[in-house]
Amino acid sequence: MSPLLSARGLELRFGRIAALDGVDLDIWPGEVVAIVGESGSGKTTLLRVLSGLAAPDAGSVIFDGQDVLGMNEAARRHLMRTQWGFVHQNPRDGLRMGVSAGGNIGERLMATGARHYGNIRAAAADWLRRVEIDPERLDALPRTFSGGMQQRLQIARTLVTHPRLVFMDEPTGGLDVSVQARLLDLIRALVAELGLSVLLVTHDIAAARLLAHRILVMRHGQVVEQGLTDRVLDDPQHPYTQLLVTSVLAA
């Protein structure tokens, strides 16, 4: 078996600041990898580079044998609406707020050639159920939804085409704690059911513990520690990881 996504030697500098400083990363099929670190550690930049949204100064990103960085925009957009998914922290960035829930979920299906209205609608209703939204809300606009519902709608919209790899940028950020727990449970169940590979960027150690098989800890653009989730969180080796873990315990 080979990794689904593989990055080697990623470098990116903003002026004097190194946002990525020699980052290597593999994601295997069906694996959930969390990237943790404080804001400014480079984790969001890494997500943007891996998903082809930003170009690094050096390094390579290979997805399923294809060179992501060398791809033209057409190929990258095609990947983005078929084999990849992106869940934004703010659902407004991932949803069309003026389009019904059904239209939001149906968009990826239609973009990849679905042309049967009844089937698109049935798939959209099914996905509303799967993310625990009443299918009666199929024709409602996302702006009439709560924050948690909007985030679940975004997940439904992203997963409807069964992508192989999903990038998630702080998917529970900005939500109430009780809402967060429910969303994390939902994501965990869907990921297991669909066998998805997920790259999760978060500063929330608890979210990483619940979802991730493996954790990478980033600081100043470098991966300072990585390993299986339990090992990294229960027996952190790097002082920065120790600090991160204890600050969670203290909080």
């Binding site: 925009e73 389009v99 019904s100 239209g103 149906g106 968009e107 990826r108 239609m110 042309r115 024709d139």
Partner: peptide, 20 residues
Amino acid sequence: RMHALADYGLMHVKLYEDIA
């Protein structure tokens, strides 16, 4: 850009919304 990439999902979303 949308024409260049034949990225016409949005047009179908509009038709879907009409029917809905």
